[in-house]
């Protein structure tokens, strides 16, 4: 009996430790494959070259165009999701009747459960043709509609995390503000939002991290042309799209072209890893403050 208890605890421990192996596996795979890449392409070229054409005869290995595409779509997504999400959070918390909140919240959560490939379809076949009526220069594949749709997808993430942060602000603060004759708006943006700011910042950072790693929407609707531009109307390519593009093709294993997806992958990983840890750090600090 004592022995079987030990064995069970050992197995449970093993399951928990597997998560560490996953992290090690990810880092090892990304490093071991991209080392081969960086033996051929210098880090300087990778970071400073302005073109990315590994699949063409005239190969150039500058990651900047892919990073630019990723940042552009992310920026558009956040530009849509932050004002919408934060306004919804404040509105539901300070204005909306309880019944409305009960109905609206789960409906908004549906947005977060829809598979991203479906959002991609929506961006390509509905949003882009719709926008083309107002923006004649808009290409069939563009960062604008992909980014906007991604923004809609991220809204519930920002709105529910921000709402949690706002409702965690002690009641007494809100009552103090009302007690001095503040309107709901003044209470919300003068007291509640600043008091919940670290929680809101965490939600935005996590949303950025999500947008940076998002794949299918941009792969379907933003195009496959690595281009160092901030123009949202033309086709671009993100890091994630590039990985999909190469995976769909017939690039032989072990070739330099194959290794490029790991170099792109490690770049993506560094971005999201940094963002996640910043948010983790803020959350930690913030919790200590309230305990």
């Amino acid at each position: 009996m004592k022995v079987s208890e030990r064995i069970i605890e050992g197995l449970l421990w093993l399951s928990a430790v597997i998560t560490i192996l996953v992290t090690i596996g990810i880092i090892w795979v990304l490093l071991s494959q991209s080392i081969g890449f960086f033996q051929v392409v210098s880090l300087t070229e990778f970071l400073t070259e302005k073109e990315w054409t590994p699949l063409f005869a005239d190969k150039k290995f500058g990651i900047m165009p892919l990073v630019a595409g990723t940042l552009l779509t992310t920026f558009i997504a956040i530009a849509v999701a932050l004002p919408l999400g934060l306004t919804i959070a404040v509105y539901l918390n300070e204005y909306a009747p309880a019944r409305m909140r009960q109905i609206v919240k789960p409906l908004l959560e549906i947005l977060a459960t829809i598979p991203t490939v479906v959002y991609g379809f929506f961006a390509l076949t509905v949003v882009t043709p719709f926008l083309q009526q107002f923006i004649p220069g808009l290409a069939g594949f563009n960062a604008l509609s992909a980014g906007m749709v991604m923004g809609i997808m991220i809204v519930p993430m920002i709105s529910s995390l921000s709402e949690d942060a706002i409702s965690a602000v002690p009641r007494s603060l809100r009552e103090a503000a009302y007690g001095m004759g503040s309107t709901r708006l003044q209470t919300a943006f003068g007291v509640m939002v600043p008091a919940a700011s670290s929680g809101i910042v965490v939600s935005v950072i996590l949303a950025i991290s999500r947008a940076v790693g998002e794949t299918m929407i941009v792969a379907i609707a933003a195009g496959q042309q690595p281009r160092l531009t901030m123009n949202p109307l033309v086709p671009i390519e993100t890091i994630t799209t590039y990985i999909v593009q190469v995976s769909l093709g017939d690039v032989p294993h072990g070739s330099l072209e194959y290794k490029t997806i790991f170099a792109a992958g490690i770049t993506l990983f560094v971005f999201t890893f940094a963002l996640n840890n910043i948010s983790f750090w803020i959350k930690k600090k913030y919790q200590e403050k309230y305990d």
């Binding site: 596996g25 990810i26 940076v212 790693g213 995976s247 790991f262 992958g265 990983f269 963002l275």
Partner: peptide, 11 residues
């Protein structure tokens, strides 16, 4: 939980 799904694909 924050690692993009495509990275899991590479793994």
């Amino acid at each position: 939980a924050g690692v993009p799904s495509i990275i899991y694909g590479l793994l």
